Amino acid sequence: GIGSTLLPEISFNYLGQWDREMNAGTMSMSGFPTGFQVSPQSERPHALDIVGSVMDGKLTLSVTYDEQEYRDSTMQGLLDNYKEQLLSIIEHCMQQNETELTPSDVSIEPLSLDMFEKLLTQLEEL
């Protein structure tokens, strides 16, 4: 269909948690600046490039975007909202006394929340 030719406008790349590697002494962060990830002259494949990693128990997100297309204040608002939602999820999870299944626990293939809820309902009825 037509939808299959559309490319996502947001790229999210989680690089992982680096605490153990750093503590083991196998790797260390360079003090040198990384420079541009993509040439400023090249056409951007995504409107937003979001890269996340965890270091020293802290999540760091960096957002790369076209300043002609987005204001800095808009991007700051996006990150503030992301942080607020993330803290809300953490608070919810901390209040749970029992573990709960999520779609990624039961399927390798992408599973919609609607289908996941139907499967849970069917399991409870058994």
Rank of each mutant, 00 (worst) to 15 (best):
G1W: 07
I2P: 03
S4F: 12
S4V: 07
S4C: 12
T5M: 13
I10M: 01
I10D: 00
I10N: 04
F12K: 15
F12W: 15
F12C: 10
N13T: 14
Y14E: 09
L15Y: 05
W18Y: 12
W18E: 01
D19N: 11
D19H: 08
E21Q: 14
M22Y: 06
N23Q: 15
A24K: 13
A24H: 13
G25E: 07
M27N: 09
M27R: 14
S28I: 05
M29I: 15
M29E: 02
M29N: 00
S30G: 07
S30P: 03
P33Y: 08
P33K: 11
T34R: 06
T34P: 02
T34C: 06
G35Q: 06
F36K: 02
F36H: 13
V38Y: 03
S39E: 04
P40A: 05
S42F: 08
S42W: 04
E43Y: 03
R44D: 02
P45Y: 06
A47W: 01
A47F: 06
L48S: 05
D49W: 11
I50W: 11
I50M: 15
I50N: 04
G52I: 09
G52K: 07
G52H: 02
S53M: 14
S53G: 03
V54L: 13
V54Q: 10
M55F: 11
D56Y: 02
D56M: 02
D56H: 10
K58W: 00
K58A: 10
L59N: 14
T60K: 07
T60L: 06
L61F: 02
L61P: 11
V63Y: 14
V63C: 15
T64D: 00
T64Y: 01
E67Y: 00
Q68A: 10
E69M: 11
Y70K: 02
Y70G: 08
Y70D: 05
R71V: 03
S73I: 14
T74Y: 12
T74H: 12
T74Q: 15
T74V: 02
M75I: 14
Q76N: 08
L79I: 15
N81K: 04
N81F: 04
E84T: 14
L86Y: 12
L87T: 08
S88V: 00
I89Y: 05
E91G: 01
E91I: 00
H92W: 13
C93E: 12
M94W: 00
M94D: 10
M94R: 06
Q95L: 11
Q96D: 08
N97D: 14
T99S: 07
T99N: 02
T99M: 07
T99Q: 05
E100G: 01
E100H: 12
E100N: 06
L101N: 06
L101E: 10
T102E: 00
P103C: 07
S104P: 13
V106W: 05
S107K: 02
I108C: 09
E109T: 07
P110K: 14
S112K: 07
S112L: 04
L113M: 14
D114M: 01
D114Y: 04
E117N: 03
E117Q: 12
K118I: 12
L120Q: 12
T121G: 13
Q122G: 00
Q122D: 13
Q122V: 15
E124V: 01
